[in-house]
Amino acid sequence: MRIENEPKLDFKDVLIRPKRSTLSSRSEVDINHTFRFLHTGRTWTGFPLIAANMDVTGTIPMARALAGFGAMVALHKYYPPEDLIAFFREGEGARNTFYTIGTNEADWEKFALVKRQVAVPFICLDVANGYTERFVEMVAQAREQNPDSVIMAGNVVTGDMTEALLLAGADIVKVGIGPGSVCTTRKMTGVGYPQLSAVIECADAAHGLKGQVCADGGCTVPGDIAKAYGGGADFVMLGGMLAGHDECEGEIRHEERGGERVPVSMVFYGMSSDTAMNKYSGGVAKYRASEGKTVEVPYRGPVDATMQEITGGVRSMMTYIGATKLKEVPKRTTFVRVGAQLNTVFGG
């Protein structure tokens, strides 16, 4: 047993210090970013935000909607092959979409079936625990079999495993254990790492190898997304912040109001929750426990308004620190430790 005494930080522990700037308007900044990927040499340009591969948010309608913002989606892994083949035959939306694969053989068999019919430019290899040797081997296998695809793999929270996954064949490493809004891993296992420090440390390791990282989880407001970019995240993945929209596939709850039946909330749950395991795996296996919760989030209509808030918040952050391009943000970010962020006299 050992104790690390150096403080580790979450998004709530810091603010970004403003800097003198020549920018006079949010319209002057560019929130798109161009990446060249480590193993393929391919490039991609867009707003580097990804809807999480949860079955509520990682949907085909979400992919089509976010494509209009230049953003991405990691599709959930429960679509039938015919739906995936039809979607990847489309144009713009499919070019900004990750195909998600888990660890079981059925996932790989379905992927092989889809890949025989269509090109899959982006692959997300998704496990809760990216620290196993089996997962490293899975990344290497995926790279060998898909030399032209960009591969995102995770999740991890430390620099050593970030390097290991990049060397095994990942282009992007997904960072985060336990920070998600409907994840209870930290409660159930005591395992985790404060998300901002995880992003900073993993980004430092990845960038030394010319790879990228995706901050997965922990963002609750647009300012947290801004902090993730400031900490070195190349991509930011969102689940809860994108839940509750028309483009999601969660169960919608209605109420009678004025004689009309109106939507008021949507069910949202973690993919390691008993809700998800009952839906897809026949229940919680005897050797494990649920590590997710099920909640209701307010119904929020089309996702466009939320994306406008997110992009607007990122643009505003960039004007405060004088960053004309998104890629400049980490170099112009100074974090300030705080005891509190918000004046909550009129609520949160």
Rank of each mutant, 00 (worst) to 15 (best):
R20Y: 15
Q308A: 15
A323W: 13
S25K: 03
R257K: 12
V114K: 04
T220R: 14
R20P: 03
A203Y: 14
G239N: 09
D83N: 07
L342P: 04
Q145C: 05
V338Y: 14
T184S: 14
D55N: 11
T334S: 10
L49A: 05
Q141V: 04
I123L: 14
Q195Y: 12
G169N: 06
S290Y: 12
Q145I: 01
G313P: 09
W108K: 07
A243S: 11
V14N: 04
L326V: 04
R89D: 01
E105L: 13
T158Y: 13
R89H: 12
F235C: 01
C214P: 07
F88P: 00
M1G: 14
F69D: 00
P330K: 05
V136W: 11
N96D: 00
L209R: 11
E92P: 08
T43Q: 12
F335Q: 00
G217L: 12
Y193L: 01
R42K: 13
Y287A: 03
Q341I: 10
A285W: 14
I172A: 08
L49R: 03
G313Y: 10
C219F: 07
Y269I: 01
K331V: 00
F88Q: 00
E256V: 13
L23G: 02
G218M: 03
R116C: 07
D224R: 09
R300E: 02
A206D: 05
R315Q: 12
C202D: 02
R332F: 15
T100R: 09
G159D: 04
Y131I: 00
N129Q: 04
V157E: 03
A63P: 05
I85R: 05
G68D: 10
S281A: 15
V329L: 10
V329C: 11
G347S: 09
G46K: 08
Y320F: 15
E201T: 01
T189S: 14
K174H: 10
G244L: 04
I225S: 05
A65D: 05
A276G: 07
W108D: 00
G292Y: 14
A228K: 07
R134Q: 09
G180E: 07
E109T: 02
M152Y: 06
Q195V: 04
G339K: 11
A168H: 11
S265H: 11
S290M: 05
G68M: 10
M317K: 08
S281Y: 15
H254C: 08
I151W: 10
P121M: 05
R261E: 09
M72R: 02
T132V: 02
Q195S: 05
G348W: 13
A94C: 09
N155L: 10
L166R: 06
T324G: 09
L66H: 09
Q308V: 06
R36Y: 07
G46E: 03
I321L: 13
G211P: 11
Y269P: 02
G218D: 02
F111L: 06
G218E: 03
I225D: 01
L196K: 06
T306S: 13
G250L: 10
G232E: 01
A153R: 06
T324H: 15
N32F: 15
I225R: 04
S265E: 06
